[in-house]
Design a protein around this nucleic acid. Structure first.
Lengths: 143, 143
DNA sequence: AAACTATTTATAACAATTATAATTTAAGAA
DNA sequence: TTCTTAAATTATAATTGTTATAAATAGTTT
């Protein structure tokens, strides 16, 4: 049940060195219940690592992604957000304040199969996001 | 059935001026069966408009998006792609060559409803993309 | 300990997009 | 048609997120 421990195991198994920076980034990703940007992580850790470079954050997030520990969520102009992979889930995004809420739903296997059948693609995965207005922003609207 | 004419009507109705540049960008979007980037549009039209600025392309794509004529497809680091809105459809994307193929599927209303129910969001829309390898890239793979 | 490799750091580069200010133009009114 | 005015375009600079580079550092392996 210790996610951090498991994640460190994964790194070890795949031959990725466990540096203090990597440890801290992973820890932050797991504990933060949000979906931080690279910059947010960088800022959050600059107390502990005053000399850490932004590149280190980006590099390691890429490493984590390649190993399958984190997912990168990209939204156009805004900066990418990173999500520690636990169970499969989708995201509901508030178009007003940008908040991201996790949302569990059985995978859309049927859609993948149909897409594969119609297009001839070898389908690997899919991405689904739901957009709307969160309760807070809805109640803050003028009416 | 004339999509360009209809699009121009939409612009008129919403009080958006029809400039030669806007006309050309719309025409290009409708005729190109691909999903061009802003830069591709810019390059494609520089013959007809040698003095057109990139900003014009971006500005107008934003206007078209706000009016609902085009959809912006964003993928992380790469540049955004723009899709003239005709009927509702999803995209199947080749992770190897980047090709985008349209894919029709009845809207995922059920998912939207459930998401709304679980999170309390007022759901507006969603985004679904399917990733895989296109037939060409699959057959080009070493085996 | 020596040699080697991975990682970090600091910095510069890059690419997509947006802001700014001056100029030009579309479209309705006179 | 010409006038008027707000809107649009242009050229350019700025911004922002991300990546590349090269030197320094720190783990590993021999």
């Amino acid at each position: 049940m210790n996610q951090l421990k498991e994640a460190l195991e994964t790194l070890k198994d795949t031959g990725v060195r466990i540096t203090p920076q990597r440890h801290a980034i992973l820890e932050y990703l797991i504990n933060s219940m949000s979906h931080p940007t690279a910059d947010e992580i960088y800022k959050a850790l600059e107390g502990k690592f005053p000399n850490m470079s932004v590149a280190t954050v980006y590099n390691n997030l890429r490493v984590f992604r390649e190993v399958g520990l984190v997912k990168e969520l990209t939204y156009g102009d805004a900066s990418a957000r990173f999500d520690f992979v636990t169970t499969h889930h989708y995201h509901v995004i508030c178009e007003s304040c940008g908040k991201i809420v996790d949302f569990h739903y059985p995978g859309l296997d049927e859609v993948e199969h149909l897409a594969s059948h119609v297009t001839g693609f070898k389908v690997n995965n899919h991405r689904l996001e739901i957009y709307g207005t969160c309760p807070e922003c809805t109640s803050n609207e003028v009416h």
